[in-house]
Amino acid sequence: IGSLMYASIFGNVSAIIQRLYSGTARYHTQMLRVREFIRFHQIPNPLRQRLEEYFQHAWSYTNGIDMNAVLKGFPECLQADICLHLNRSLLQHCKPFRGATKGCLRALAMKFKTTHAPPGDTLVHAGDLLTALYFISRGSIEILRGDVVVAILGKNDIFGEPLNLYARPGKSNGDVRALTYCDLHKIHRDDLLEVLDMYPEFSDHFWSSLEITFNLRDTNMIPGSPGSTELEGGFSRQRKRKLSFRRRTDKDTEQPGEVSALGPGRAGAGPSSRGRPGGPWGESPSSGPSSPESSEDEGPGRSSSPLRLVPFSSPRPPGEPPGGEPLMEDCEKSSDTCNPLSGAFSGVSNIFSFWGDSRGRQYQELPRCPAPTPSLLNIPLSSPGRRPRGDVESRLDALQRQLNRLETRLSADMATVLQLLQRQMTLVPPAYSAVTTPGPGPTSTSPLLPVSPLPTLTLDSLSQVSQFMACEELPPGAPELPQEGPTRRLSLPGQLGALTSQPLHRHGSDPG
């Protein structure tokens, strides 16, 4: 009997000691992992102490058991019943959930998450997105703005933001810190809205009876308010094209079509300037034949640059190039080494500058006005007194259609001029006259002087055409309008007829 009692007592005591040691061994194993994590990542002392304290409290609170892992091991129907039991206190005593059906309560219970916070733990920081609604079931918390405590909340209090009033989550206007050990039930806004969409009859009752104890939403960050730039940057990543407008005076608003859609830094370009900076079609017209890549860069430059609305530039004389043409100036200075066709295309550029300027006046029909002061630039669209967005969009579309028509007509005119030049060069190729044979009589004449090349004649003739079109064909006081194609086609051969009437002889060394 004594040996039996000794064996039973010894066996029970050893089993008890073994169970104690097993729990202690698990605790030390998990604690060792936490300390190894702290050492590996070199976490500083204040945060390291918070980690160790939280682990110790969580171990004593749950005995080292992962409740979520245990809950996920059950089937979904059983999980709903378990969640309904775990959140029964909240669902029974909170006013917004009263009167809900059994199915609605089960769906809500599945969406709730339980959070346990030790003292000093910050649940929400200032500036964080308010993605959830919090219900306090135990403990107390404090809300701070800077170093000032603005509120202390306790059991059955609710904090967050009214989700039904805002389409997008706002930002917190303060820090939420736990004063004691707290148990909180939180539900994400997407989950709550999903359940309320499934039960629309409960939705009206819920929003009407929901009383948020403390609204954390920062009202200064609401979209459309003066301080909402940061919020707009976070939620409006896919922005449309940006529009900046110059201020319109009362006198300017009476004149229709007073602005032109141009790229940034293009205030001095012609009315047909689009795409790359520098001139019509993204580059100076005089350098068009020598740089074919300008047409390839036109599309990307047009689509990537934001639109700006600026006044037209001052008018340019008909014979003056659009500006920024070092290529043609070098050719004029060193005409001995340049291609003979460069002079002809220089005359073509003069005609283009004249036609572009006159067509700009035809479509816009307003006098040039000086540029406004820099303080009046970049007025935002949302400022008071601005035109409605639809009106601005319609004006932009009208300007775009005008620019497209202008570009089409300029292309047709350019093709006409090039065809005339090619026809003239085919009839009378460039050549130098040879020395004529002296006559049989004693009164022999001296050799004839060489005839100037055709490109120079073409430049003079085209300059005469531009001056003739600019000065004589337009009646005084009438708006400057571009001439039609047949009129220009008839004027060019008439001007060139006198020049080509002389018999030109080919030089023996000319390969053409």
Rank of each mutant, 00 (worst) to 15 (best):
L262E: 13
R316A: 15
L376I: 07
L399M: 15
G263I: 12
S433M: 09
K240F: 11
S353H: 09
V195E: 01
E201W: 01
A167M: 13
P322N: 13
S335P: 13
S272Q: 04
Q502T: 04
L193M: 11
C471G: 09
E194D: 06
Q238I: 11
P300Y: 01
Y363S: 12
Q495C: 13
R177S: 03
N220K: 07
R241G: 08
A344P: 10
P511S: 05
Q402N: 06
E298P: 05
A398R: 09
S208H: 10
S272R: 04
P372A: 10
T337M: 06
V435M: 11
A470R: 11
P289A: 09
A178M: 04
R387F: 13
P318Y: 06
D197P: 02
L341C: 09
R138I: 04
Q424F: 08
P326I: 14
V428P: 03
T373C: 10
S236G: 10
S287N: 04
M469P: 14
T436A: 08
A269R: 09
Q467C: 12
A344I: 07
P482H: 04
N350C: 03
R248P: 08
G439C: 09
S463D: 11
F245H: 07
P503R: 08
R248K: 11
Y181E: 09
S228N: 12
C338I: 11
S291E: 10
T249Q: 11
E407D: 10
R506F: 05
P440C: 15
L399H: 04
E473V: 12
Y363P: 05
S346D: 11
P370Y: 06
F352T: 12
P493F: 11
G174V: 10
G441L: 11
A498Q: 07
S225Q: 11
L410W: 10
A478N: 04
P440V: 10
P370E: 08
S294N: 13
F159C: 01
E325S: 14
S287A: 06
E201V: 03
C182E: 01
T213L: 02
M198P: 02
G227I: 10
N156Y: 12
R506M: 15
P289R: 10
G360Q: 07
N164S: 12
N404K: 05
I187M: 03
P256W: 09
N220G: 06
K186S: 14
I158R: 02
G477I: 13
Q424Y: 13
E480M: 13
M425N: 11
S346C: 06
D197M: 06
G160I: 01
T373A: 12
L309I: 04
G508V: 09
I379W: 04
R248C: 12
A269S: 10
S209W: 04
N378M: 05
G257Y: 09
P476N: 08
M221C: 12
P340H: 11
R239C: 15
P503D: 08
D460S: 05
G160T: 02
P317Y: 05
V149H: 08
P306V: 13
R389P: 05
P200L: 01
P322K: 09
E296T: 15
L459D: 08
S446K: 06
L474A: 06
R145H: 09
S228V: 09
L133T: 04
G508Y: 13
L421C: 07
S509M: 09
Q464Y: 13
G477A: 11
V149E: 03
S461H: 04
N220I: 12
M469I: 10
S334C: 15
R395T: 09
S358K: 04
V195T: 08
P384A: 10
P370N: 09
A412Q: 04
S349L: 04
P289M: 05
T426E: 07
L376H: 07
L496Y: 06
S314P: 15
R246Q: 12
P442S: 09
C338F: 05
C338Y: 08
E201P: 03
T436Q: 10
P311K: 08
D397I: 14
D460R: 11
I143G: 02
P442L: 09
A415C: 08
V435I: 12
N378E: 04
L179R: 09
R506E: 12
T253H: 13
T253C: 15
R316S: 09
L504G: 09
D397S: 08
L499T: 08
A261P: 12
E194W: 07
S236A: 10
L153F: 01
P271A: 07
M414F: 12
R368C: 07
C369A: 08
I187C: 03
S228K: 08
R217S: 11
F214Q: 03
V348D: 07
P169V: 12
A434V: 08
S411C: 15
S172F: 01
L406G: 02
P503I: 11
S209L: 07
G477W: 15
S461N: 13
V149P: 08
E142V: 05
A167F: 09
P384S: 11
T229W: 06
S140C: 10
P438V: 13
A371H: 12
P306H: 09
E298R: 06
T408P: 04
I212R: 02
L496D: 08
I379F: 10
C182M: 01
G347A: 08
E161W: 02
S334Y: 07
T229M: 07
F159R: 01
R368N: 11
E258S: 11
P340E: 11
D357A: 13
V195D: 01
R246N: 14
Q422H: 13
T229C: 08
M198G: 04
F235Q: 11
A415R: 08
K251V: 11
A344N: 08
L243A: 11
R138V: 08
G170N: 03
P264I: 13
S260M: 05
F354Q: 07
R423L: 06
S244N: 11
Q502P: 13
F354A: 08
E332W: 06
R217V: 04
S335I: 07
D197F: 08
L327R: 10
P285I: 15
H188T: 12
L193F: 12
Q422R: 08
L427S: 07
R395Y: 05
T253V: 10
G288T: 15
E296H: 13
T253K: 11
P380V: 03
S209E: 13
E480G: 04
P311V: 03
L481F: 12
N350T: 14
D175P: 01
E473S: 11
F312V: 12
A267E: 11
A470H: 14
S446N: 09
L403M: 04
R506S: 11
T180G: 08
Q502W: 15
Q495P: 13
L504T: 07
G268L: 10
P326S: 13
G154K: 08
G257L: 11
F245S: 10
S394E: 13
S236K: 12
Q255V: 07
R177K: 06
H507L: 03
W207F: 04
P300L: 03
S172T: 01
Q464M: 13
F468R: 08
P162F: 03
E232P: 09
P453T: 09
P476W: 14
P372R: 09
A478Q: 05
L474S: 08
L457P: 01
L381V: 13
G127I: 01
A167D: 12
P317F: 11
E142H: 04
D397C: 15
A498G: 10
N164I: 03
D413G: 03
V150D: 03
Q362C: 08
S284N: 12
